[in-house]
């Protein structure tokens, strides 16, 4: 099992009041699954994504990633975990604006301690994979939205992570470009990647093979897509 979540709870302090964002979450994700996490705003899907992405740790319960208990990790170990095992893809791309595509894609490898030549080599291959070999030396501002998101996908892919974690990946794109990105996700899934997409759009969730629906911080339904 790649991801195993048992009776997870996450509380927040909002001012002085403690708010429960997630509770009684039990979840298992196998390798090479393609999962969509859906839910209205405030349902806790962002919180779940933060925990899945090792950006945050649960208040209660257990989160095992590859049999490693994430809640027991130190800040540095969480950083290393994000670096090696998680490939983030964000709604707003989150590229560093003053760097070329290539540098952006190299960045996770740099923090992973990969040496310069291998880094460049792997970043170039990742960009080739998403069809941007020609745009390697362009800065994000010189690219279209779809191209930017491809750079972000390449950055997520470049470390060969355990999961690709996409948060509303088409939210900032027009529907045609969005479809292209989702088609790319299909290909990546077919190549053996594990993909988790967080979305509130049904059409996007339908690309996945399984949909988890969150409501009021709990799992409302969890079923394979027909």
């Amino acid at each position: 099992m790649l991801i195993e979540i048992k009776n997870l709870q996450k509380n927040y302090l909002m001012g002085k009041i403690e708010v429960t964002a997630l509770t009684e979450i039990d979840l298992q994700i196998r390798k090479n699954e393609y999962v969509a996490i859906m839910g209205p705003s405030g349902s806790g899907k962002s919180t779940l994504m933060n925990i899945l992405g090792c950006l945050d740790t649960p208040t209660l319960g257990q989160y095992l990633f590859n049999n490693v208990d994430v809640s027991s990790l130190t800040d540095d170990e969480l950083s290393a975990m994000r670096n090696r095992e998680i490939g983030f893809i964000f709604q707003t791309f989150n590229l560093l604006p003053k760097m070329s595509s290539l540098h952006n894609v190299e960045l996770p490898l740099m923090y992973g301690g990969v040496d310069k030549h291998e880094r460049k080599d792997r970043a170039e291959r990742a960009l080739q994979r998403v069809g941007l070999a020609e745009r390697m030396h362009h800065k994000p501002s010189e690219l279209s939205g779809g191209q930017r998101q491809r750079v972000a996908v390449a950055r997520a892919l470049v470390t060969n992570p355990g999961i690709l974690l996409a948060d509303e990946p088409t939210g900032a794109l027009d529907s045609k470009t969005g479809d292209e990105i989702m088609a790319l996700f299909d290909e990546l899934h077919n190549e053996g990647n594990t993909i988790i997409v967080i979305t509130h759009e049904k059409e996007i969730a339908e690309y996945a093979h399984r949909t988890i629906f969150l409501k009021d911080g709990m799992i409302f339904s969890d079923a394979p897509n027909s």
């Binding site: 992405g53 950006l55 800040d75 540095d76 950083s79 290393a80 994000r82 670096n83 090696r84 983030f88 989150n94 590229l95 560093l96 960045l107 996770p108 923090y111 992973g112 950055r155 470390t159």
Partner: peptide
């Protein structure tokens, strides 16, 4: 800083 941290930069980095 958030982006760098998300893709694996440690506090020390």
């Amino acid at each position: 800083i958030g982006i760098r941290r998300a893709i694996g930069a440690r506090k020390a980095d």
